[in-house]
Amino acid sequence: MKSKILFESQKHQWLVLGRDSEKQKEVVDTNEYVILSDENVMLLDPGGSEIFSQVLAALCRHVDIEAIKVIVASHQDPDIVSSLAMWLDLCPGVKVFCSRLWTGFIHHFGMGTAMELIGIPDKGMEIPIGNSGNSIFAIPAHFCHSSGNFSFYDPIAEILFSGDIGAALLPTSDTDLFVEDFESHIQYMETFHLRWMPSSAALREWVQRVRNLRPVMICPQHGAIFQGDNAEKLLDWLESLEVGIHDDLSNPELDQRMAQLRNNRDFSV
């Protein structure tokens, strides 16, 4: 699994872990982000249980596991946080934040372990990075794609973690951590956004919100990171996108089969 420092100041650091060349091909590739702020560690979307050992092994090289104080989950999907039971066991006292919509659901990932799970209100909130005195901010991203969804903005690093927004499903041969050529990168994002994002209006609202923040880096949970001009290009592209579109769903074969079974039942009763 690759790791790279994205931002570093005296007592504040951003780290990305991802592109695991040894992961099973059935499992979607994810990026895990880590903030180390004055000895306090925050994990952003720590990932699924299938890749837990690899993420932990990569993390072991950079931070003290027992210094993990906060975990934030952009939404409720298993690739986001199904490893939670292990993190709770290794880092007792860790605080977990997710949309208020998903607290009851995310408890299922805890495997019965006690946890302090804090529901983020719909309008967002400030989330302290342990006792560092620094915070990140939960930025509403509802319906992009999950109905209870957040991006997280760090005003010190000026980095926005965007969850599934800006995500790309890259071929395994593509190992760049940053987007090099935006135009050629679109092909890996397009299908994902058209099918996974349900609302163009919600996506445009999010773009407006993010433009006001002017992040220097936009970091998605899948695929490469956008920095500088590419962050701006991503926002333009998302704004122009008509999402929530799917193919014709009519399925005469299935309809016929259901009708057949219904008729059989009527005769036999």
């Binding site: 249980s49 837990f52 050992s53 932990l56 092994a57 072991c60 039971a85 292990m86 066991d89 019965g112």
Partner: peptide
Amino acid sequence: SICSIAIKRYYLYTRCLAIC
């Protein structure tokens, strides 16, 4: 069922150690 959770954890932790 509690035992199976401990097995999962044991397996994932030792696997991580092996990677390290």
